[in-house]
Design a protein around this nucleic acid. Structure first.
Lengths: 355, 355
DNA sequence: CTGAAAGCGCTTACAG
DNA sequence: CTGAAAGCGCTTACAG
């Protein structure tokens, strides 16, 4: 590895002392403009870069924040990660902070890792995604008194900083939209409720039903694994009901893809016989069969905001002042449509043909 | 931020000197087993973690590697990034190294950033993805004498470490497969050739043609922007040809999604009238219309191997000994099929109906 | 087996 | 305006 020039080398090269050179480089005003220029030029020429480990040890801050990768990111269903990292990087680069990423195996590992991470002075802040309703990571980070910001929310989210999409509201909108299309038997395909986002979306669905004077039928709420396969399983349960739904709202685009597959497998056409709405706004949804109608959100925004918020908090601002709720909006493609008044019997016969 | 206990605090707490405590913790053998145990227990109880900035400054290595995010990752078409990071993280965690990610705006920024990164002693190694044929980053990193490993290859890839999929071979296989289905008019939808992977895949396509005694028709090679829109544009050009292809191989799944859309827009069914094969093996391809046949590859593998290789090189091993070529395999879904012997006129009339 | 000391490469009061 | 010195929190020869 190319041993880069040290401050001492630069100083002797200039016939100055390290303290003068250091202050010149760091823009101290008590340095003569002439030497300041001379020092900067020499630094450029020699390609001097302050050793960050030394610098950070000296100034007492790691100038680094860490993004804790969602544990299930490995399943490849986390297309938002690259964008989020991009946004975080943008926010941090303004102040030359570094972005670390950290994965963990089990939940216990994760807590131990967080503990190690902050106690070892490597990081000055943390960002975590998709918290549980009652997320042990958050209590730990609070105990550690490490600045942090949450991408999403927990059940009790009053006393820390977060950025979230108002997904409850989004599901109200989705239900309203479907009711507007004539649907009344609307189902919900959800993810395990220990995730707060899963609970929020279910709440929104239920609020939407109530707001339209629709009864809630427990059979129409199907919770499954948070993946396309899960969406398929849940949707199959719905379609097996004596009185199946005419519309389905799904907790994510991935689950909606599974729902589309299940509907098609019965010889029904999503967007015709059954409406399916996803949540996420993945660009890929445009290529689904049929193109997926979904609740889209400003993805690129999230990382940048999260980064800015975290930096402010590290600067001493009150975390409670950094709680930001964004809206999702309906991105209509082709998987939703008006209620079709078909006799049940007819639908069944079509279905049987394809089995 | 919770000021974690320092070595000095731990030492005074134990009535020992920092040097003894440090060596006990680092497993030196010249420490009595009794005190070693005592020290370790106390460290656990007090939650001591060595300050990494101090430690790394002292031992002279940053114990950190950096992944340079592909610049176009922002477009959201980089689903492999999360998996790659996961794999890298796994490899690094075995030795407690950290994983930094770095983005850059323009190409110039990127070079400056790399320079800063390695000169500032923040990182002990670099991994870069998808190099250009002649990638200026690689020359720079070599000049800097920073250990590195490439995810992909450049045109001249003899003197550094890399991990790549044999995509030339994959395209030979794809062409062979299509020829086996009766196709002879096979087109190529490609990405800009400054990317080496784009050139490799074109080469494979051409080799495949030659191997089957098929003439190469320049009209059948369409290069476009590396995205689904690009794939659509390229495919439209192909379908506008006086004698359109009966099969298309695409340089990526994203481009193939665009190709499927273009084919469907003409009222033709991919997998029937025209075969389309992608490359990547994205799980999402199963939800395309129709499900996309593709050349799949062991994605989870890449990050782990890259991380292991880089660590070995940092340990002093010869980079040239770490060049790994993996094979892709055909993942058949439903966008390919046997050549249909339809009269051209007939095809055209179907097409016109749908315009 | 343990301690005293130097050093990693910076920054920053403190003198002058 | 510049220099000499202490300190950030570790590790690691070197003594004893």
């Amino acid at each position: 590895m190319a041993q880069s020039v040290s401050l001492k080398m630069l100083a002797t090269h200039l016939g100055l002392t390290v303290s003068t050179v250091s202050r010149a480089l760091n823009g101290y005003t008590d340095i003569s403009p002439a030497t300041r220029e001379r020092v900067k030029r020499a630094a450029d020429e020699l390609g001097y870069r302050a050793n960050q480990n030394a610098r950070r040890l000296s100034i007492g801050t790691p100038e680094t924040i860490c993004y804790l990768m969602p544990r299930y990111a490995s399943s490849g269903t986390q297309p938002f990660v690259a964008q989020l990292l991009q946004g975080l990087g943008e926010a941090l680069s303004k102040r030359n902070w570094d972005l670390l990423v950290s994965h963990a195996g089990t939940s216990k590992d994760e807590l131990a890792q967080i503990d190690r991470l902050v106690r070892s002075g490597r990081i000055g802040g943390l960002v975590i995604s998709r918290p549980l309703k009652n997320d042990p990571r958050i209590r730990l980070i609070q105990d550690l008194k490490c600045p942090f910001v949450v991408h999403g929310r927990t059940a009790a989210c009053d006393d820390y900083a977060w950025y979230d999409i108002d997904s409850a509201r989004a599901f109200v909108d989705a239900v309203d939209h479907l009711v507007g299309l004539g649907h009344s038997r609307i189902a919900f395909v959800g993810a395990p409720l220990q995730y707060q986002f899963a609970q929020d979306r279910l709440n929104g669905y239920q609020t939407g039903l109530k707001g339209n004077g629709l009864p809630g039928d427990p059979d129409l709420v199907q919770i499954a694994e948070f993946s396309d396969e899960g969406g398929e399983v849940a949707t199959n349960s719905l379609l097996d009901l004596p009185e199946p739904p005419t519309a389905i709202v799904c907790v994510s685009d991935a689950m909606a893809f599974g729902a589309l597959a299940a509907v098609r497998a019965r010889g029904l056409m999503p967007g015709k016989e059954i409406s399916v709405i996803g949540y996420d706004g993945l660009s890929f949804g445009a290529h689904a069969n049929p193109p997926l109608t979904t609740m889209a959100q400003p993805q690129a925004h999230a990382g940048r905001r999260l980064g800015d918020m975290l930096l402010s908090i590290i600067d001493g601002e009150d975390p409670k002042k950094h709680q930001e709720l964004q809206r999702a909006h309906l991105l209509r493609r082709q998987s939703d449509g008006p209620l079709q008044h078909v006799v049940d019997r007819e639908k069944r016969s079509i279905r049987e043909e394809h089995q």
